[in-house]
Write a protein that binds this DNA or RNA. Structure first.
Lengths: 189, 189
DNA sequence: AAGAAAAATTAAGCTGGTTTAAGAAAGTTA
DNA sequence: TAACTTTCTTAAACCAGCTTAATTTTTCTT
């Protein structure tokens, strides 16, 4: 089924019946997108939370000089949106788009709240997801402060070698906070 | 009562009885600390989650050159720990210490889980807390990529003028990712 | 209130990483 | 398989922000 990735993921966090999982899954829309499709536009109201079943999404923004800067990648089993904008139903700070052809589940803010009201056990699921994600984001802030740009790349390549193969180099540079030119120079060494 | 700050904070997120709040509060230890007291040591197991009733805490690490780098401040009504280390019961990546004389509530990992089991409604509370905190951490990563060090300081000063007054300048520099010398130079302009 | 310690300032020299610009390689389309 | 587009590489000039080190100011301790 097209929503198996999500229900399997939930099962790793909760003890829950198949019947409930089916009902929970029904809150989500399933859709496939070709690569480089924009799902959320910056400045537009952010009313969707995404779960990646297959493929890869990114959130990015355009800096003062017009260069896109990647904030987050989301691959299989990751959640992605502009979380602040989503919860406040404000305009998004980020563009969200597919990096690869992708299968994506989405839920609107009102459906998300309905889901949490009807299945309070999902509070536990999202609490766990956000707890980890928040901890990881703070670790990223630590890394940004600790490592030089060169070290950032080398560490990342050692930690996620398959992912480095998977995304274009200019996106990786953007995510790691250096220029494609400098990344290219580092690789030469 | 010494735990009012917490119970009041919970009330802003949940509809809940006073009796339950009293029971929930009983899971926490209340303690006061003088400024510059270390509550968690890096490399030691992280088994406490803190809620700041009064005062200010920071989490920081020591970089390769021996300089402390502040990752997070926590003032009244903020939660603080090394969230990844806490949930995995691993050694902390950060030192956590008081910046001011502070009143702090704390809970161990096992008590935290007991609390969530006995009062599932607290899943909703923490889900909301972490959802916001995660969103904010990603916005910080955006800011780090967007702004020059000078802009970082000016933006922060405009957004949190009272906080800039409140903490020593060298800690602010550390948090914003620049040297005290450079911050001093920026202020002169 | 004096002395010690911690924090903030100033200034000069230096460097990691950016900018710019052009060409090479790889991928896509017809 | 040629033409077009996107991505990657190379190299030189440049600069935001760091390092170092000495001085001054503020805060803490007794």
């Amino acid at each position: 089924m097209t929503k198996n990735a999500l229900t399997n993921h939930i099962k790793t966090y909760l003890v829950i019946s198949e019947e409930e999982l089916i009902e929970i899954a029904s809150f989500f829309d399933y859709q496939t997108y070709r690569k480089k499709t924009t799902l959320i536009f910056a400045k537009k109201r952010c009313d969707q939370l995404f779960f990646v079943s297959k493929g890869c999404l990114q959130s990015y923004f355009i800096d003062n000089l017009g260069n896109p800067k990647t904030i987050q990648f989301a691959i299989e089993n990751w959640w992605l949106t502009d979380f602040l904008a989503f919860q406040n139903q404000k305009q998004s700070n980020f563009n969200i788009e597919t990096v690869e052809n992708s299968e994506v589940l989405s839920i609107s803010f009102s459906k998300y709240n309905e889901l949490l009201t009807k299945f309070p056990v999902m509070e536990k699921y999202f609490r766990a997801i956000y707890q980890t994600a928040y901890g990881s984001a703070l670790m990223r802030l630590k890394h940004v402060n600790t490592f030089s740009k060169e070290e950032m790349f080398l560490k990342f390549r050692d930690s996620y070698p398959e992912f480095v193969q998977r995304v274009p180099q200019y996106l990786l540079a953007s995510f790691l906070g250096l220029t494609p030119e400098y990344l290219s120079e580092i690789k030469r060494k």
